[in-house]
Design a binder for these strands. Structure first.
Length: 361
DNA sequence: AAGCTCATCAACCGCAGCCGT
DNA sequence: GACGGCTGCGGTTGATGAGCT
């Protein structure tokens, strides 16, 4: 690895483990047990830090590890658990005997997330067909390609420095508007699942599938990770939630209000968008400001940050654009971010077209 | 065959939470 | 309650090998 690690600085080894080191670690833990990681390396005669030893043991040397390919059943389980728990890998790993959080995380990032992404894209664009024409691999846009794309987008932004300011105003107005409407709405309705569903119905809020996804993106606020991978909205949980409401309607649901509220709303809102008093928190408003500042810096040629940082921020802005909630009837609900023409699919299509054109502008 | 791109995996880092003092 | 040490977690990175042009 290129940079010097904290271990190297204090004279400890880092990087790949040798067979000898593995043997020492296994031997020590077999006779002394796990734990006391801080003192373990010294006692075991290893020039490693405790953290490194712990990681090596848990992710590689432990005896009860399965290793090898994930079965279809395991994949299904991971997808399902990820929909419920999000990126809580240790939680997910605890449901999969013999698999580590690190292994599952890698597996998710390299394979499963892009399958989920393709599922989402199917609604509007057959990505596999488009990509197959030129690219040899399907799905996720790689880090390096995303990086190039974003560099390109930034250079385009340099040519139109007035755009961010226009967007800033629009974003703030619409975020504020939306926040007010949702907060009032949730308060007025005591955050009760069947009330919300009934009320949505009475106000003629009719969602099409992709609009449910868009709304979810808005509530989630984190539609894309730093490597440009779209996180999958909680379709399973939405279905679950709808089933619960059906139960309620036919009087079969015996559970108390708190329980139902917790399950349906916290899942639906992804657990993070609402605090304990039932007030919706606005996603990523800080991020918008930050991004606007950076764009300005960039335009003034003052930006010294590295490509990765800019990549993260611009991708995070892309997720913001996704928040352009496309309500079925804007006049009915008064929520319009002003980005109704821009959603995640548009952004991704844009990237794919850019690739298709050879990645140059 | 060479060079490039990408996927995968192991390992590292920073941070938050827990616990003892 | 404040503080410090330890542990565990999630995000990120670099090495490597496979596949493609």
């Amino acid at each position: 690895m290129g940079r010097s690690t904290c271990c190297e600085k204090i004279g400890l080894k880092s990087g790949k483990w040798t067979v000898e080191e593995d043997e020492k670690l296994v031997k020590y833990i077999q006779s002394n047990g796990e734990g006391s990681w801080k003192s373990l390396p010294k006692n075991a005669g290893l020039l490693r830090c405790g953290k490194s030893c712990r990681l090596r043991w848990i992710n590689y040397l432990r005896g009860d590890l399965k290793r090898g390919h994930f079965s279809v059943k395991e994949d299904e389980m991971i997808v399902m658990l990820h929909k419920s728990f999000g990126n809580r890998w240790s939680m997910i790993a605890s449901h999969l005997p013999g698999r580590t959080d690190n292994e599952i995380k890698n597996h998710w990032n390299s394979r499963l997330s892009r399958q989920s992404y393709r599922f989402l894209k199917n609604a509007s664009l057959d990505v596999s067909t488009l990509v197959n024409q030129k690219k040899r691999r399907l799905g996720r846009v790689s880090r390096s390609v995303a990086k190039k794309y974003n560099q390109n987008m930034f250079s385009r932004n340099n040519n139109s420095p007035s755009l961010p300011k226009v967007m800033e105003k629009q974003v703030h107005e619409n975020l504020e508007n939306c926040s007010n409407v949702l907060t009032t709405y949730v308060k007025d309705n005591q955050v009760h699942d069947n009330v919300i569903s009934g009320d949505l119905e009475s106000k003629q809020f009719e969602f099409e599938d992709d609009e449910v996804f868009n709304i979810h993106y808005f509530l989630e606020g984190e539609a894309m990770d730093s490597s440009g991978v779209l996180s999958m909205p909680d379709e399973y949980q939405i279905e679950q939630w709808l089933r619960e409401i059906e139960d309620e309607n036919v009087g079969k649901n015996e559970r108390n209000v708190d329980e139902r509220e917790d399950e349906s709303l916290s899942f639906y809102l992804e657990g993070e968008a609402m605090d304990s008093s039932g007030v919706l928190s606005m996603p990523d408003e800080y991020q918008i400001e930050q991004w606007m500042r950076e764009i300005e810096d960039e335009n003034g040629g003052k930006n010294e940050r590295n490509v990765d940082e800019r990549e993260d921020e611009s991708l995070s802005l892309d997720s913001l654009k996704t928040m352009g909630v496309s309500w079925y009837d804007e006049t009915e609900c008064d929520i319009d971010f002003g980005f109704t023409g821009l959603n995640m699919c548009d952004e991704e299509d844009d990237m794919l077209h850019w690739l298709w054109e050879g990645g140059n502008h």
